[in-house]
Design a protein around this nucleic acid. Structure first.
Length: 785
DNA sequence: TTAAGTTAAGTTTTT
DNA sequence: CTTAACTTAA
């Protein structure tokens, strides 16, 4: 029991209880920053060292690869020898691992493909086309969401069909679900939800497999339990079996994935499922300064549906969290950038100590701009995933098609990439032929010669099929990276981009190069591992392994702790992380909480979820917290005016450095401007709709003027402005044909032609750098040199 | 068949 | 502002 006394030195009583209570179901309600990962890692070490549990009998499940990796590192460090054998992974990759082994028992090939959101949308489009459903009336997304919700609740297509009413729209949904699922199965593919659902189905249907895993996994731990959905709960319930050594760690106040099917009742009702469960509360926070915690508590108290708890800390109060409101989002971003720069210069913190959090990915742009301006190193997490870029998806589609020829989505994607003269018509006919004859798309391609409908394209198809054959054969001899190089060369993909020479093409090439280095990394790791185990290298396995890893990557996974940069990310991505200095930006009603949540009719549940998100954001901060808002911000190309977020108003004044603004109907907007667009005097009415009440859901909107792009939009702009009496035909121009002039954007050029176009003169100018352009004199504001 | 160009529509949040 | 879907010209 030497270890226990050692543990007593580094853990508090509650944490220690969590470590020592190894048997039976345990629910650890762990507030933010209360050291839950610490408990889990020490628990694993304790199981191994004191309880002599074999490491391969222990499983720890997290949500992201990053969290898994971190836990793995900490376990290795603390538990020492043998710790590598502890099964630490995410829900999704655990399931993939199980399914890769046993999927054949539920009618899938073990080399099944994993479809991302784009792929599922493609499948859904096909389904709706086949069923003659008008996608204008019923959106793909709607069906996909419904199906996802079903899968998260373990409702299969048959269950769904059985339970829906005679209501035609419900019946249609059931048909769509069935057809969608049939397609996935035909493609030997699973979507993200299927990974969990099918694993549960497998364990339920095949007692041999169930027993196998139950005998292997004696102790199961689940991190971020508040974000599990019903299917995930059922999965761990099944796995833990009769032993019920299931330890879940979570915080109902940090449940922020309800929209994704997370079931808060998993945590609230854990004791109902397991009456014998031990419940342990961790309420001492080791992360944040006192004042930050006070703010967090003040905000979360406004939620009704929660388990009452209050975080406390022994830390000093620290600085008061700041709140600042700015006239525009530009000023907000500029403030954040310069504030960070100031602190870094003053050596108060390194760049890696800062995080800027926001509600939506779109908000990152403006921040990025200001960070570039200030020369601050930064990293944006999220947005467009590397693996979702066109060129990467293209090359991946080749690999997927080689890995699993039944993957119709992949085969169809590359059929005409690069251009082979096989167009949409031909593709449609092949698809039809495949459907009629119960073939996969690729099989239909192989039989194109027998297909009277595609006589003309048959030759081109044949060469495509031959090409794929050749490629497939390369895998074994040239390896994964060799195959990728081959694909890029032989398809001409690379040379086409090289020839294009545009900036866009260059970034594509860079991306492809990065992709190659990723495959090559994976390949050498794979080979080394196999060599160490004395196994031969199976190139097919290597390919599937690579694709699998790639398809389960999340954006947050790429964040490295030790690199010197400020991270910018959504509040969702920030869950589980901590930073000395945190900026919460865009705290505006209508943005955060979002317009959707405010206007939702569910009795405030969605706003409560947003409030939990705010709570997550606040509790990321260790030393300082800065909250900011903007009065005006561009959203989707139009300027919106928002009131300060209700969440900010929920904080007692004395806890904030900074004042909440008072709303004045005659608020003056002359202090800011936005790019190029003429304001048409909304200044005085801007706050009319938001002042007075706390809501501000109906943020005022204003149309933005079109950007100066083409002659057509000039004309439109002119029309609008002329009709409003804001622009008139220029009376006599200051320049003539042949004169040298300067344009604000295009620089210096020579006037070639001036045509009287009625309302205005149409001027043609040959610019030195921007080429020859036609423009209207009233707008071009050309300056004679 | 394809490229280019125009218009309509849309957004939380993600494994 | 971006993206997808549609139209038209080559």
């Amino acid at each position: 029991m030497e270890m226990v006394s050692e543990l007593r030195n580094i853990l508090n009583d509650r944490q220690l209880e969590g470590v020592l209570q190894t048997e039976g179901p345990v629910l650890i309600l762990a507030g933010a920053g209360s050291g839950k990962t610490r408990v889990l890692t020490h628990r694993i070490a304790y199981l191994m060292e004191e309880k002599h549990v074999a490491p391969w009998n222990i499983m720890a499940i997290t949500f992201t690869n990053k969290a898994a990796r971190e836990m793995r590192e900490r376990v290795n460090r603390i538990a020492g020898v043998g710790a590598e054998a502890v099964w630490v992974s995410t829900f999704h990759s655990s399931c993939v691992r199980i399914l890769r082994r046993f999927a054949d028992r539920i009618g899938y090939g073990t080399n099944f493909s994993i479809y991302d959101t784009d792929d599922t949308k493609t499948v859904m489009k096909e389904v709706l086309k086949q069923l003659n459903i008008d996608t204008k009336k019923f959106k793909e997304r709607m069906f996909l969401n419904e199906i996802s919700n079903c899968k998260n609740e373990l409702i299969g297509p048959e269950d769904y069909a059985g339970k829906v009413s005679a209501n035609p729209s419900e019946k249609m949904k059931a048909t769509v679900y069935r057809e969608y699922q049939a397609r996935l199965r035909a493609n030997n593919a699973m979507d993200f939800d299927d990974l969990i659902l099918n694993t549960v189905n497998l364990l339920r249907l095949d007692s041999e497999v169930l027993l196998y895993y139950q005998e292997r996994l004696h102790y199961i731990m689940v991190d971020e339990y508040q974000d599990t959905n019903s299917a995930q709960f059922e999965l761990v319930r099944l796995l833990s079996g009769a032993r019920k050594n299931l330890c879940v760690v979570g915080d109902d106040d940090q449940s922020i994935y309800k929209f994704r099917g997370a079931n808060i009742y998993n945590i609230l009702n854990f004791e109902r499922y397991f009456p014998e469960a031990r419940v342990i509360r961790l309420e001492q926070n080791y992360r944040s300064k006192g004042n930050i915690l006070k703010v967090a508590n003040a905000v979360i108290q406004h939620n009704k549906g929660r388990k009452e708890k209050k975080l406390w800390t022994e830390k000093e109060a620290g600085q008061l969290p700041r709140f600042r409101q700015f006239d525009s989002a530009y000023e907000e971003a500029a403030f954040i950038a310069s504030d960070i720069k100031k602190k870094e210069r003053a050596l108060e913190a390194d760049y890696k100590d800062f995080a800027v959090l926001y509600r939506t990915n779109a908000q990152s742009r403006i921040l990025e701009e200001k960070f570039m301006l200030e020369n601050i190193p930064y990293k944006i997490v999220g947005g467009v995933n590397f693996y979702q870029r066109k060129e990467i998806k293209d090359i991946l589609a080749y690999l997927k098609a080689i890995d699993n020829v039944r993957d119709d989505v992949a085969v169809r994607r590359i059929l005409n990439v690069p251009k082979r003269g096989i167009g949409a018509t031909t593709e449609g006919k092949i698809a039809e032929y495949a459907l009629d004859n119960g073939l996969s798309f690729y099989e239909a391609l192989e039989q194109a010669e027998n297909n009277p409908q595609v006589l003309r394209a048959a030759k081109k198809i044949k060469s495509f099929v031959d090409f794929m054959e050749v490629l497939s054969s390369k895998l074994e001899y040239e390896g994964l990276t060799g195959l990728v190089r081959n694909i890029l060369d032989e398809t001409g993909y690379y040379s086409e981009l090289l020839a294009e020479g545009t900036d866009e093409a260059k970034t594509r090439i860079e991306n492809l190069d990065e992709f190659i280095s990723k495959t090559s990394d994976y390949e050498s790791c794979f080979r080394m591992e196999k060599e160490a185990e004395g196994e031969t290298v199976d190139a097919t396995k290597m390919l599937s392994g690579f694709l699998e890893e790639v398809s389960l990557i999340a954006d947050i996974d790429s964040v490295e702790e030790n690199d010197q940069y400020v991270v910018l990310m959504t509040l969702h991505s920030a869950k589980g992380l901590e930073f000395p200095c945190v900026y919460l930006s865009g705290l505006e009603d209508g943005l955060f909480p979002s317009f959707m949540s405010i206007s939702s009719e569910d009795g405030g549940e969605e706003v409560e979820e947003e409030r939990r998100l705010m709570y997550v954001g606040i509790t990321r901060a260790m030393e300082t917290l800065t909250m900011t808002a903007a009065k005006a911000r561009m959203v989707r190309g139009e300027t919106q005016y928002h009131a300060v977020s209700r969440f900010v108003k929920e904080i007692p004044k004395e806890l904030i450095d900074g004042t909440l603004p008072t709303y004045d109907k005659s608020a003056n907007f002359d202090s800011f401007s936005y790019d190029g667009g003429k304001r048409e005097g909304y200044g005085s009415l801007a706050y009319g709709g938001v002042s007075g009440y706390g809501g501000g859901a109906q943020a005022m909107r204003s149309k933005r003027q079109p950007k100066e792009t083409s002659a057509a939009s000039y004309k439109k702009k002119l029309d609008t402005l002329v009709s409003k009496g804001m622009a008139t035909k220029t009376e006599g121009l200051a320049y003539r044909e042949g004169d040298q002039v300067r344009h604000k954007k295009f620089g210096v050029g020579v006037v070639q032609k001036i045509v009287d176009g009625g309302r205005d003169y149409e001027v043609t100018v040959a610019f030195e750098t921007a080429g020859v352009r036609k423009m209207f004199a009233a707008f071009a504001k050309l300056e004679k040199l």
